[in-house]
């Protein structure tokens, strides 16, 4: 139970904390206040609690595949909002425009809150299940704390590492990671729709489980980080690649403008 709770919690927390730290780094680059994170965390937690409590009912929707449909919708919505975030950031038309800044922050809040809703609901279900067993209370609590600590620590270090990079490098690394996260969201959504039989199942492209098992802690952390999967199907892979390329395309398009903005910020 101990390792299991660490793996489960750290994976879920890491997914959210990496997303948060990238968005925080972007917001910082645009010299925006970081208070939005708090709003996103509170909103996300509230909705995660509500969703977690009603997981049983949701599961029965759409002929017992409601959970997949709701989760896939959340993932796809996040992907669309990430497209918007990339567009807003890279076109930086709003660096001096109040309205644009509010749209960027509202978008960031929505992305983080949605990510937390899905992950928080899973954590909530896990904890209510595990904590009713007196034998496991201490173990699961310890494991959850360690998992949370690992997830948040990586996020914090990642945020400062992004800040330590210089302008262009930071932009490229941030963008690439953003594209991988968005890609993993799409492939997860496709997997969920497969599972619900709403999408045709396509053959598995490769099996890298002997190189890095999804079962191992590293595998699970990598899954949380960039959606690593040992046996991806063709459709998942296509969705992943397509989404990542769209993000890169939107983000790379206006590179010169970013440079200008950075210069004015650094000046």
């Amino acid at each position: 139970m101990f390792l299991n709770s660490i793996a489960l919690i750290s994976q879920e927390v890491l997914e959210a904390s990496i997303l948060i730290s990238i968005l925080m780094a972007l917001a910082k680059q645009l010299q925006l206040s970081q208070r939005w994170v708090l709003i996103a965390l509170v909103m996300g937690s509230i909705f995660a609690f509500i969703y977690g409590q009603n997981m049983g009912d949701v599961s029965e929707w759409f002929d017992y595949v409601g959970q997949e449909i709701v989760n896939a919708s959340i993932q796809l919505l996040i992907v669309i909002l990430m497209f918007l975030a990339t567009f807003l950031y890279s076109h930086s038309i709003f660096s001096s425009n109040k309205q644009g800044q509010i749209i960027f922050l509202a978008n960031a809040i929505a992305i983080v809150a949605l990510a937390i809703v899905r992950e928080g609901a899973e954590i909530y279900n896990y904890l209510i299940g595990a904590l009713v067993q007196p034998d496991y209370v201490l173990t699961v609590t310890a494991g959850s704390l360690i998992g949370t600590g690992i997830g948040i620590s990586i996020g914090v270090l990642f945020y400062y590492a992004m800040g330590a990079l210089t302008g262009k490098k930071r932009h490229i690394i941030g963008l690439v990671l953003f594209s991988l996260i968005a890609g993993s969201m799409t492939s997860q959504a496709i997997l969920l729709l497969n599972q619900a039989d709403w999408l045709i199942s396509t053959p598995v492209l490769w099996d890298s489980s002997h190189l890095l098992s999804e079962h191992s802690l590293t595998g699970r952390l990598l899954y949380g980080l960039i959606g690593y999967e040992a046996t991806p199907s063709a459709l998942e892979f296509a969705g992943y690649l397509g989404t990542a390329l769209i993000i890169l395309f939107i983000g790379m398009k206006k590179m010169p403008k970013i440079k200008c903005l950075e210069q004015t910020i650094n000046a």
Partner: peptide, 17 residues
């Protein structure tokens, strides 16, 4: 992991996978 399936089943409920 081998089936790539993951689904929460609430207490006293049933789901389809």
């Amino acid at each position: 992991y081998d089936l790539n399936r993951e689904k929460v089943i609430a207490g006293n409920r049933k789901v389809i996978i």
